[in-house]
Design a protein around this nucleic acid. Sequence first.
DNA 1: GACCCACTACTCGGATAAGTGATGTCCGAGTAGGGTTGG
DNA 2: CCAACCCTACTCGGACATCACTTATCCGAGTAGTGGGTC
Lengths: 166, 166
Amino acid sequence: MRISEGVEWAAHCCLLLDWMGVDEPVSTARLAAGYGLPPAYLNKQLQPLVRAGILTSTPGKRGGFRLARSLEDITLMDVLTAIEGPEEAFRCDEIRQNGVWADLPESAFRAPCAIDAAMRAAELEWRRALAARTLASVQTDAELQAPYLRRQVQDWYAEHYPAHTP
Amino acid sequence: MRISEGVEWAAHCCLLLDWMGVDEPVSTARLAAGYGLPPAYLNKQLQPLVRAGILTSTPGKRGGFRLARSLEDITLMDVLTAIEGPEEAFRCDEIRQNGVWADLPESAFRAPCAIDAAMRAAELEWRRALAARTLASVQTDAELQAPYLRRQVQDWYAEHYPAHTP
DNA sequence: GACCCACTACTCGGATAAGTGATGTCCGAGTAGGGTTGG
DNA sequence: CCAACCCTACTCGGACATCACTTATCCGAGTAGTGGGTC
């Protein structure tokens, strides 16, 4: 049971996009440079975010990614669901319907498996907490520790990887 | 991100062991028959429970597994940790230390990554809920839906897979 | 000089490999009980 | 008849294959800018 690293990458990239503060699309190459990630693979990880409506993509030269909405309107749950899919981590295979229970009438299985129900309830707490946390609030936490971050990001890109200037 | 099916198997087997209500060890073969599972693989899944102190195992003929303690004292968290290991689902790779942040002094990374902290906090809610749920309470839920379960288990085994009688 | 057009450089998007962990199988170490043999 | 011993049947435990999914890479479709040619 492990959450894909794509979740971490995606969340970081959303914050980075906001810190960069540009209105034009940012290419995968520039984003990847900001975290030292392999560009092609980062691109692959960001595509689900586009499908989920968290980012918008622009193809072609001068193309790239933009935040589709404010960080206020993106939760950690949104990011997780986009990358990992909507399915729950615990999936009940209904093994209770075999062996001992095989001969019971179908009505015996109307009620959900008690183990499944308990696991789902716990997982729901997790998702609730994720849904309550916006990327904006996470960004605020980061800036409380390091208020210079936005400036640092913009300066670094201006020096190391400036956008193509006309 | 998917929880191993071993967690479902392990939890069910603990309940089954209690329902069977025998004092002698129950072999993997009998347990597997109760849920229609492959015996050898179930054995493999139960071994971590022994290491975690949830079950005790007896080798040799007449060997098998027993509950090491009451269902009251086993939580879903215990089962999950035994099978999946103690590591968190979300593991931060500290990609923030690369690229833009590479030149910052080390002191900038004393504070934990804000994304990591938020993800961990949410995951903690999940684990808290799992730790609050004992197998006994899950069993109670199951019996509320089907009060005949304990009897059904014992009858089924007496008819289909009786323990070796001297 | 201005407009149109082909060409190049660069981007996303999905198709295609490589690697890692989960899933599944098999055999060896060890134990209990029963049968056999000797007293 | 009784006791000691060996032998068999059965069990867990871990070593050994198989498979799926995550991780990683590559090429094609498409777009914006550029340069040249033509009116």
